[in-house]
């Protein structure tokens, strides 16, 4: 087809080149357009419609949709004991996770950008979770009813004689700043999860750091700039655009990972209770909230981003 387009271009002149390009462009992206319409727009629209309906299976003929207005939305916000709580927990977790992942990956990428022995090995290890995570390693161990009961047993028999627990209780004895310490302790406890969730972000930051030309630092040092100053005046602005990319990637990654309790609830509604309408309504509320958060965050950050070129 593209060959035909080229022949047409040959016959006519420059003016038609743009047209040929447009046709070729559309041909190249046509798999995406078709797939997007069939597997994204159509299901999205239908899921929105379903969230306003009661869907019941009719034997032998598929499904019947009966319009029921806002029933599902009313149910999940007013009656459902779990939905709002889990949603808020998820958002709270996000507010804690995203900044920690960003700070962690930024810090690590600066360390990994320096020269030291075994750097290749360390980089490989930090990137390993990207390959191994997403379900198999993380999700399975808690999924199983048999095993989770055993884990509770282990937790109960633990006498709590660990250093971290003692430190935690000492820090929490103080009168002021308790909630601050609690947040810090939560982050420290989650350091494994943060480390395994920041593989891609580290790579993105690293790629940004490598594009900054060393002559900039050299010039700054000659002018008497300290390392601290050159960090804030050169490094930070130069990779601020990547901070935006990483924030968006982290938020999306956090929300679309499928092993959280919230996702499990939506799945249970779908696959166990066969309540299609309600599960659609649940995921739509979730989707709208994600879009809103992404919009707000990228608006705030993109105003502060500095573009070098």
């Amino acid at each position: 087809m593209a060959e035909q387009a080229v022949k047409a271009v040959k016959k006519k002149k420059q003016k038609n080149l743009a047209k040929g390009n447009a046709i070729a462009g559309y041909l190249f992206i046509s798999p995406f357009i078709i797939g997007f319409l069939l597997f994204m727009v159509y299901p999205l629209a239908q899921s929105l419609y379903m969230s306003f309906c009661t869907v019941s299976p009719v034997s032998g003929q598929g499904f019947e949709f009966v319009w029921s207005g806002l029933t599902h939305y009313r149910y999940i916000f007013r009656t459902d004991p779990k939905y709002v709580r889990l949603l808020l927990e998820e958002l709270e977790k996000m507010a804690l996770y995203v900044p920690s992942i960003l700070v962690f990956s930024f810090f690590m990428s600066i360390l990994l950008n320096q020269e030291f022995k075994g750097r290749t090995f360390v980089r490989a290890v930090y990137f390993l979770p990207v390959i191994l995570s997403s379900g198999v390693m993380i999700g399975l161990e808690t999924n199983n009813a048999l095993l989770s009961s055993m884990q509770d047993l282990v937790k109960d028999s633990d006498n709590g004689t660990s250093i971290t627990a003692t430190l935690e209780s000492i820090l929490l004895q103080g009168e002021t700043g308790n909630s601050f310490f609690e947040t810090i302790i939560r982050v420290v406890n989650e350091v494994y999860n943060i480390a395994i969730a920041s593989g891609i972000q580290i790579i993105i930051f690293l790629s940004g750091l490598q594009t900054i030309s060393p002559s900039m630092y050299e010039a700054a040092t000659i002018e008497g700039c300290t390392a601290w100053e050159s960090f804030w005046k050169i490094t930070f602005p130069m990779i601020s655009s990547l901070i935006l990319v990483n924030v968006i990637y982290t938020i999306v990654d956090f929300f679309t990972k499928s092993d959280s309790e919230f996702m499990k609830m939506i799945n249970d509604n779908l696959l166990k209770d066969f309540n299609y309408g309600r599960s659609s309504a649940m995921s739509w509320v979730y989707f709208v909230i994600i879009m809103a958060i992404l919009g707000i965050v990228s608006l705030i950050i993109s105003k502060r981003v500095y573009y070098y070129d």
């Binding site: 995406f32 997007f36 597997f39 994204m40 159509y42 299901p43 999205l44 239908q46 899921s47 379903m50 598929g62 499904f63 999306v252 929300f255 679309t256 499928s258 996702m263 939506i266 799945n267 779908l270 299609y276 599960s279 659609s280 995921s283 739509w284 979730y286 989707f287 994600i290 879009m291 992404l294």
Partner: peptide, 22 residues
């Protein structure tokens, strides 16, 4: 739209897809 494709969680569209393919 490509960005939208990245952002939409699979949970939102999985129900209709499930019915769709049956």
């Amino acid at each position: 739209c490509v960005i939208l494709l990245i952002v939409v969680p699979p949970q939102t569209i999985i129900t209709p897809l499930y019915l769709y393919f049956t």
